[in-house]
């Protein structure tokens, strides 16, 4: 399998490149170096000139523009088919994809069609020196263990967790841009898109501070307390957002884009305030890398306290308003206190 390349699938939606693609190229470059093979990037869309040019400076040897009028919006049936053609042509050894809704939709089915399989949500990639196969480290049982998988089938497919691989740096040299037009028969499209609805989605990954509520908040009204606290904290921080655990989404108290954890956003703000959250492993993996963690919970035995820097064992309904009032007070006679804090740190 000497000359088989590493293929990185570019993360694009509606013609816009997601910069996380650079993390995949970064990981790909490292593996390509170890194996002494080329690295290629596949971009799918109806017009890719701008994106292809942009991505061509990040160390890939080739950038395949997989172009067709029907690839302009994301339709898994067609994306799978288009990539199947590309893979048959270039026969990659490894295919790297971001662990995103796009590639979870495409990757596993594509791998199956090519007689292989996918390892999803990897956080580490190495090459086994004995046989040149990929060693894929993946959290399992919610994050209670890390399993290293090795599969012999080629190509070796992985989806990679965001925010763990180092993004590729920009280089002076440019990779070769290769046109790869595909002919897609409309009959391949078996799922018809009727319309896409954008919701006022927030991106929790950008927040400096997250005030997150769990089932212990008790209902949508309780989230107003958290919104109020977030509002006060905005006097001191740029981006303060309200997040939540999964049961809160299930109950419809808060929209799904606020969910933090294994199946939601993975965040690491400067300050994370967990309120009425028990600290299940699937929640912890999404927030335990925050700089400072505060937990407010009535139950001292909750796991959340095990990962917290500061804890309050009490009813949030009485803790949060006083935290907010005192914060505002401190901000008002700010100068004196700020000096104090600087002296302390």
């Amino acid at each position: 399998m000497a000359n088989r390349c590493i293929l990185v699938c570019g993360e694009t939606r509606d013609g816009i490149l997601d910069e996380r693609t650079l993390e995949m190229i970064g990981a790909g470059r490292e593996l390509a170096g170890k194996l002494g093979v080329e690295i290629a990037v596949a971009l799918l869309g109806d017009d890719l000139d701008g994106i292809a040019e942009e991505i061509s400076f990040f160390g890939a040897d080739k950038i395949y523009k997989v172009v067709s009028p029907s690839l302009g919006t994301f339709a898994p049936d067609l994306w799978i088919r288009a990539l199947e053609e590309l893979c048959k042509q270039i026969d990659p050894q490894i295919v790297l994809m971001l662990h995103s809704t796009t590639w979870m939709d495409v990757g596993p089915r594509l791998a199956f069609r090519l007689g292989s399989e996918t390892t999803t949500d990897c956080v580490g990639l190495e090459i086994d020196e004995k046989d040149g196969l990929l060693l894929k480290t993946k959290p399992v049982f919610g994050g209670n263990a890390l399993a290293v998988f090795k599969c012999e089938k080629l190509p070796q497919f992985v989806t990679v967790r965001r925010n763990v691989m180092k993004p590729a740096a920009r280089l002076a040299a440019q990779g070769e841009i290769v046109d790869f037009p595909v002919n897609l028969d409309p009959s391949m499209l078996r799922v018809e898109s009727i319309k896409t609805v954008k919701e006022q989605a927030v991106s929790l990954e950008k927040a400096n501070v997250i005030v997150a509520g769990g089932r212990g908040i008790g209902g949508p009204e309780g989230f107003k307390e958290l919104e109020d606290l977030a509002e006060s904290l905005k006097q001191s921080f740029d981006e303060v957002m309200v997040g939540c655990s999964r049961p809160v989404v299930d109950s419809g108290w808060v929209p799904a884009d606020r969910q933090i954890g294994l199946s939601g956003a993975m965040v690491q703000p400067d300050l994370y305030i967990a309120v009425g959250i028990s600290g299940a492993i699937q929640h912890l993996v999404g927030m335990a890398r925050s700089r400072t963690i505060v937990a407010v919970n009535t139950d001292i035995n909750s796991s959340i306290f095990a990962v917290a820097d500061y804890g309050v064992v009490d009813d949030y309904k009485r803790v949060i308003p006083s935290l907010k009032d005192r914060w505002e007070e401190l901000c008002r006679d700010g100068d004196k206190d700020t000096c104090l804090c600087k002296a302390n740190t």
């Binding site: 300050l271 963690i293 306290f305 804890g311 309050v312 935290l323």
Partner: peptide, 27 residues
């Protein structure tokens, strides 16, 4: 991590203590 628990007779007092500590840490 090692958790430092807020002390106080009432929940309100714990909340205020937390604010003071966080304000020191973050300014």
């Amino acid at each position: 991590r090692k958790c430092r628990f807020m002390e106080g007779d009432a929940p309100e007092e714990k909340g205020r203590n937390l604010a003071t500590i966080l304000k020191r840490e973050f300014g």
